[in-house]
Amino acid sequence: MFDLTNLSVHFGPATALREASLTIRPGDRLGIVGESGSGKSMLALCLMGMAPEAATLSGTLTIDGRDMAEATERDWQALRARRVAMIFQEPMAALNPLSRVGDTVMDPLRLHLGLSKQAARARALDLFAEVGIPDPAARLRQFPHELSGGQRQRVLIALALACDPDLLIADEPTTALDANVALRITDLLVRLSAERNMALLFISHDLAAVARATSDIAVMYGGDIVERGPTRAVLDSPAHPYTRGLLGARPSATSLPRDANGKRARLPTIPGTVPGMAELPKGCRFAGRCPVELPHCASERPALTKPGPDRSAICHVLSQEVSA
């Protein structure tokens, strides 16, 4: 359905995204994990045809077999209206504070689907019920500030579902929410994806949330998709050194770990900091911070290797192991 092949995004000499390839089929639940500057949001913007004007794109993006390189802004608008929807981190910022949430949801129904006012209202009620908003009739008349953070995010999900999208892109949808609420929103997205056979692209830095929400995962670093595979398999046995570092750095909520001297154990860390877009190494992006680096890592681009069934990673160390 959505097919990205070798998509790169450049800003002058700086690379935001390098040869990213992805396929999204109906009902897929794909997680994109990465830290700031990894390129995960740029990937989402490209899928929406919303890459910044200053960016130069190369590679192909086909949607339902159609090459989107020729697509006009009008084509993209039609696509965004009917096929792809997006929800964001901060639900308050995405809602018009002066508009009743019912009107916010009904407007696109009337505009894009041409429904009458009554039909749009009935549809909005159904959608509110579907996303688990209690007493939907009363909620329709409320303003965003009268709702809790979780309810607002549900309203945005209802709005995103209004035109029956084939793909829902959720960019950090739970980051601004309290832990309990975040769990319920994650579970809601999973349920909706299954019930509607709707693809879900779940972008987050929160590994726990991604683990719960997705069946497949792509780990990004410095504009590269460094590792791909089934979520469980990747999280249980990460192949790429960056994925291993990232998983190790995340503290676990079990008892306070102590070292041999009875002192608090330090967390494993990835040394250094993410370089700027223009200062990334030419070869493997993780070179310079990698604990198992080989001499040619910084200069030569690693090839795709298959560390397991349905899995892929780009890493020189891994390709050596596989060929050995």
């Binding site: 832990a179 309990n180 769990l183 590994l207 726990a208 676990s252 909520a253 079990t254 008892s255 306070l256």
Partner: peptide, 23 residues
């Protein structure tokens, strides 16, 4: 003590926080 609460949370709410933290 942190160890005690994390290993044997007495409250449902604490348990749900543990779930959310991915434990």
């Amino acid at each position: 003590a942190a160890t005690q609460i994390l290993n044997a949370p007495a409250h449902d709410y604490t348990k749900s926080l543990l779930t959310a933290a991915g434990a």
